[in-house]
Amino acid sequence: MSENSLQDEKVIVFQLNEEEYGVPVQQVGSIERMQHITRVPQTSEFVKGVINLRGVVTPIIDLRTRFNLEEVNYNESTRIIIVYIEDMEVGLIVDEANDVIDIPSEAIEPAPEVVGTIEVEYIRGVAKLEKRLLILLDLPKILSFEEYKELKTVEG
């Protein structure tokens, strides 16, 4: 452990469309395998439904849909990351989740701004590690329905 380990951030790394993302480990409750999801009618498109997480009914969000990525079939490596955001418990469907790493705080940069794209609010920053680029997410923003709608109307 290095001296400045206190400032390091421990994140769970997951894959989505061959890119790597990170969520702070404190916010993650557990990582589950894919299981039966009960659809909830008339909610936002990215809300896939609810699952029975050891007796607790937990809503599930498909991050691919949320980020407007192409939908793929779920397979053996598909995972549900259960995260705690404010007073809510939500599951996020990701392609793969298999790593926990420490990110030194100096490696984190703000999200790059590119002309011609709309600003996505749910990206908190980008962490540059050796050969790897990690996108750090701002979880509460992911849950917001408003931003999603905005995004859809701009692109659609």
Binding site: V40, P41, V50, N52, V57, P59, V90
Partner: peptide, 22 residues
Amino acid sequence: LGNYLTNVFAISGATILGDGQV
């Protein structure tokens, strides 16, 4: 349904069935 999904149309709650599904 938890604090995230509130006010879902025509749904007042959920239950867990014998097969573990919601």
